[in-house]
C-alpha cells in the first residue's frame, strides 16, 4: 500500500530576526493509511513542529514531506491552506475551541471553511456517538468539562473526513480518567473507522495502549529509544 505520509530529510529552521532555531534536523518517516503512530520525546525536541509541517501550517525549510502523494515543500501558502481543509484534522493540547461558539457551531464552522457540501451525516453521527457528546452540542466551551471539550475538538477535526488526524498531546490537559476516555476513543476511531492518526504524547504508556507503533524524537531527529 502507498504511504499516506512520506517524510524525507525534512528540516525546519525558525528564524526570529537574526536568531535561527533549528527545530527539525533531518526527519525520515513513513506512515501507512489506517496506521496509529505515537510520537514521544522531551519538550523542545520538535514534535509539534513536525506536526505543523505535516499539517501544512508551515512550510519545511528543506527535504520532502508528501501527504497523500502531494509534496508540501513544493506548495504555495494557498495550496497548503486548501490541503488543511480536507486532508488534515488537528487536535491540540489546549482544545482550541472557538470560545464564543457552541460545540455544534465549532463543528459547523469547520465544515463551512471547507465548503463541505457532500457531508456524510450518517458517518458523522457515528463519530458523535463514538465520542459520546451528542447531548452536549448546544453548549459553549466554558460550560463543558475538559474531557468534553477535547471530544468536541476531535469531532471538529473529523468534520470533513480528513485522511489524517494529527493530535498534539491531546490528553496533556486532562485528568487520568478523562485521558483514558479520550485515548480509548482515539483507539476506537482508528480500529473501527480506520482513521489514520498521529499522536504526540509525553506518556509512553499512552503510546503502547493505542498506537501500532511509537517513534522517539530528540533534538529535532527521530532516534532509537
Amino acid at each position: 500500500m502507498p504511504h499516506i505520509i512520506e517524510v524525507a530529510d525534512l528540516t525546519k529552521v525558525y528564524r526570529m530576526g537574526r536568531v535561527s532555531v533549528p527545530a527539525l534536523r533531518g526527519i525520515n518517516l513513513a506512515v501507512e493509511p489506517g496506521e496509529f503512530l505515537a510520537v514521544v520525546g522531551p519538550s523542545g525536541s520538535g514534535k509539534s513542529t513536525l506536526f505543523y509541517v505535516i499539517g501544512g501550517l508551515t512550510s519545511p525549510t528543506s527535504g520532502r514531506a508528501c501527504i497523500d502523494g502531494q509534496d508540501l515543500s513544493q506548495m504555495s501558502d494557498a495550496e497548503r491552506t486548501r490541503l488543511r481543509k480536507r486532508t488534515i484534522g488537528f487536535v491540540f493540547q489546549k482544545f482550541n475551541l472557538l470560545p464564543t461558539l457552541t460545540a455544534a457551531e465549532n463543528i459547523g464552522i469547520a465544515r463551512d471553511i471547507a465548503g463541505n457540501r457532500n457531508f456524510d451525516r450518517v458517518h458523522f453521527d457515528e463519530i458523535l456517538r463514538l465520542l459520546g457528546i451528542g447531548d452536549r452540542l448546544s453548549h459553549k466551551p466554558f460550560a463543558l468539562s475538559g474531557g468534553e471539550q477535547q471530544r468536541v475538538a476531535i469531532a471538529r477535526a473529523l468534520a470533513n473526513s480528513p485522511k489524517i488526524l494529527l493530535a498534539d498531546e491531546p490528553t496533556g490537559n486532562l485528568d487520568t480518567q478523562n485521558s483514558q476516555t479520550v485515548l480509548q476513543m482515539l483507539k476506537d476511531l482508528n480500529r473501527r473507522l480506520g482513521q489514520t492518526i498521529l499522536m504526540i504524547t509525553h506518556n509512553p504508556g499512552a503510546g503502547t495502549f493505542c498506537a501500532h507503533r511509537t517513534v522517539h524524537m530528540r533534538d529535532g531527529r527521530i532516534v532509537e529509544p
Partner: peptide
C-alpha cells in the same frame, strides 16, 4: 488564537 484556530481548520486569507 482564534485566527490561528481558523487557519488550522483551513481558513484562507480571504475567509
Amino acid at each position: 488564537r482564534e485566527i490561528g484556530i481558523l487557519k488550522s481548520l483551513g481558513a484562507s486569507r480571504l475567509y
